[in-house]
Design a protein around this nucleic acid. Structure first.
Lengths: 110, 110
DNA sequence: TGGTTATTTTGCTTATTTGCCAAATAAGCA
DNA sequence: TGCTTATTTGGCAAATAAGCAAAATAACCA
């Protein structure tokens, strides 16, 4: 693989890595519903505010969310809506895994 | 967030985490094209075979690929085709980030 | 059975990620 | 300005991930 090709896969991986955390997936889904400030998200998530803020900065650095200060609060929103289609596919994988698991159970009961 | 909700986001995150590595993204894309054995993939990737094998086991544990032994070789294939739509969306994010970057450059030149 | 090829597993080291706390920064208001 | 609220940053310890090399498995063939 040449350098450019490696760079492409690294760039893609950075986006996926930014999404690959339960809290960040929650944030993505919530922001798709409506914009939220750090304080609101912290209330829903129940972690330290600094932790939530750091998750948001990970999403922001990946270009997945944008932020806008209004008064004392900073509101975040999802920048790229197609991200949600992602989640649908992930659900398909989970469903498929569950089915496969079920088959194993059925098979071994016989 | 209750336990079930946390478990759901953790399950989704596990899938994304399995994808979130440049080498594994390459493997996913290649397997979508055609099934491949470890040896073939190792040749394309240029890492230690044990490393490639480990990447494949990560993908397999996440339910993203399946394997089938034929003779001495083990062939891997992509289990869930919608994964590729994912990549399209990631490309959209990258494009969008590049555009945003371009805007900044344009703005600061003025 | 012994040798060869293909693959996985184990051990080990290094790098990255996570999350809390405390300190720093920012904005609004009395 | 001083106080309060909202958010980010830096430091640090624990957990997780990554990659190589060597040893272990597995299948094939002579």
């Amino acid at each position: 693989m040449d350098n450019d090709t490696v760079a492409l896969y690294e760039a893609r991986a950075r986006i996926l890595k930014a999404m690959a955390h339960p809290t960040r997936l929650f944030i993505i889904e919530e922001l798709q519903r409506q914009e939220r400030c750090v304080n609101e998200l912290t209330g829903m998530i129940g972690a330290d505010m600094s932790t939530v803020s750091k998750h948001l900065s990970v999403l922001k650095n990946a270009g997945l969310v944008s932020d806008e200060r209004r008064g004392a609060s900073i509101y975040y929103r999802l920048r790229v809506p197609c991200i949600m289609d992602f989640i649908d596919c992930v659900e398909t994988v989970l469903k498929s895994n569950a089915d496969a698991q079920m088959d194993i159970v059925r098979c071994c009961r016989k």
